[in-house]
Amino acid sequence: MPSSASNPVWRRLRADRAAMAGLAVVVLLLLLAAAAPLVTALEGQNPTAFHNELIDSATGGVPIGPFGGASARHWLGVEPGTGRDVLARLVYGAQVSLSVSLGATVVQVALGTLVGLAAGLGNRLADTVLSRTMDLTIAFPGLVFAISLMAVVPGSFPRPVLLMLVLGVLGWGGTARLVRGQALSLRSLDHVAAARLSGARSWRTARREILPGLAAPVITYAALLLPGNVTAEAGLSFLGVGVRPPTASWGQMLSGATTWYQADPTYVLLPAGLLFATVLAFTLLGEGLRTALDPRAKSRLRRTRSRRSRQVAST
């Protein structure tokens, strides 16, 4: 990649204040998640220890004290019902949320790129078969399938990895369709014909003339997939089919919140705000990347999205 092609991208991204704000939040979240053990050590708590003495058993377990029982020892209060430390659960929840969504995105993009390339550069039969498969996966009821799969996978399988794989395997269709379309249109360009005429082997032609042209749209698409995966993980955990207790997750905290929000609003607003900030930050960054990488790509993306490559939906 010539440096002259990457510099203007960074410059355009830097000029986009919303995207830079998104980037800052994303970096902060990543640091927080990575430093989760450090944060909890600093506070002197851990995410799984019960503190029965901090909740009021007469009211069914409402934390004692204002703001969810926030104190010098529990900076953001404790969980109603169990008295577990909220800050510790939030930062460990960030670990789950970010690792699952990043992992799922990697699986989606890797699978999608592979299948899309095979369809776009392969022969007609391969294209027909793979395109049909893409249509099928895109049409699949993603969330339903993800929930259902939880019923048949043995409980011993590590849940975060399972979530990553399930979201990844169900959500590669959009990327594949994008890559196939791009590969097909790039393949028909004359500079690819010129490379063939020079006698170059097909892999050399693909590597030099086609793959570099795919980088920008794939990165853009991946950046837009990410927030969807954050939402999907939170949704599955909210429904109780995501990560298993006692592992902490934002979605799980929110599902518990349904019964607590009148007695302890802090406990609802913290994970809700964090989830919202995460998704918004990733979305802003993705939008910024999209315009920075290719200011004219808007219409192309709209078209691919309008043909419903909405991912594991969020209803």
């Binding site: 927030p227 939402t231 939170a234 949704g235 909210f238 979605g251 929110l254 599902s255 919140a257 349904t258 929000y261 609802v268 809700a272 989830l275 919202f276 998704v279 918004l280 979305t283 802003l284 939008e287 969020s314 209803t315």
Partner: peptide, 14 residues
């Protein structure tokens, strides 16, 4: 953008 960043269970809950 904010609407797209809000999962339905969050909106419903709030």
């Amino acid at each position: 953008l904010a609407g797209m960043a809000m999962p339905v269970f969050l909106v419903g809950l709030l």
